[in-house]
Simulated assay, not measured.
Amino acid sequence: MKTLFGLIVLILDIYAIVQVLKSGAKPVEKLLWILVILILPLLGLIIWFFAGPGRK
Results as ranks from 00 to 15, higher is better:
17 I>A: 08
2 K>D: 06
36 V>P: 01
42 L>G: 04
12 L>I: 03
1 M>C: 04
21 L>A: 15
25 A>D: 13
29 E>S: 10
44 G>D: 08
35 L>P: 00
10 L>G: 05
50 F>I: 15
20 V>G: 02
17 I>V: 15
2 K>T: 07
12 L>R: 11
4 L>I: 08
3 T>Y: 05
14 I>P: 00
24 G>T: 14
42 L>K: 05
38 L>T: 11
30 K>Q: 00
27 P>A: 12
51 A>D: 14
20 V>T: 07
46 I>T: 04
13 D>Y: 00
30 K>I: 09
55 R>V: 13
33 W>F: 01
52 G>C: 02
13 D>K: 10
55 R>W: 02
39 I>C: 13
33 W>V: 01
20 V>M: 01
4 L>P: 00
3 T>F: 02
13 D>F: 00
21 L>K: 15
4 L>G: 00
21 L>H: 10
11 I>N: 10
52 G>A: 06
48 W>C: 00
45 L>V: 08
4 L>V: 07
35 L>T: 05
26 K>I: 10
35 L>H: 01
12 L>W: 04
4 L>A: 07
6 G>M: 14
8 I>L: 12
56 K>H: 04
37 I>M: 03
22 K>V: 06
6 G>D: 15
11 I>Y: 07
4 L>W: 03
15 Y>C: 02
45 L>C: 09
40 L>H: 09
54 G>N: 13
39 I>G: 09
29 E>C: 02
5 F>Q: 08
47 I>R: 10
37 I>A: 00
11 I>S: 05
7 L>C: 02
42 L>S: 08
2 K>P: 00
12 L>C: 10
48 W>Q: 02
23 S>E: 13
36 V>C: 09
54 G>T: 04
8 I>P: 02
52 G>S: 14
44 G>P: 10
39 I>S: 11
40 L>A: 11
49 F>C: 10
18 V>E: 00
3 T>A: 10
15 Y>D: 05
21 L>Q: 15
8 I>K: 11
28 V>A: 14
31 L>I: 12
1 M>T: 05
23 S>H: 12
54 G>V: 06
24 G>N: 15
55 R>Q: 02
7 L>M: 08
42 L>W: 09
6 G>R: 14
16 A>F: 03
1 M>R: 06
50 F>C: 08
4 L>E: 03
15 Y>H: 02
28 V>L: 13
47 I>M: 09
16 A>C: 13
49 F>I: 07
42 L>A: 11
21 L>C: 15
52 G>F: 07
25 A>G: 11
47 I>F: 15
31 L>M: 11
7 L>Q: 14
31 L>C: 08
52 G>I: 05
33 W>I: 02
43 L>P: 10
11 I>F: 11
14 I>G: 06
56 K>L: 07
29 E>K: 10
20 V>P: 01
15 Y>E: 03
23 S>A: 13
22 K>D: 12
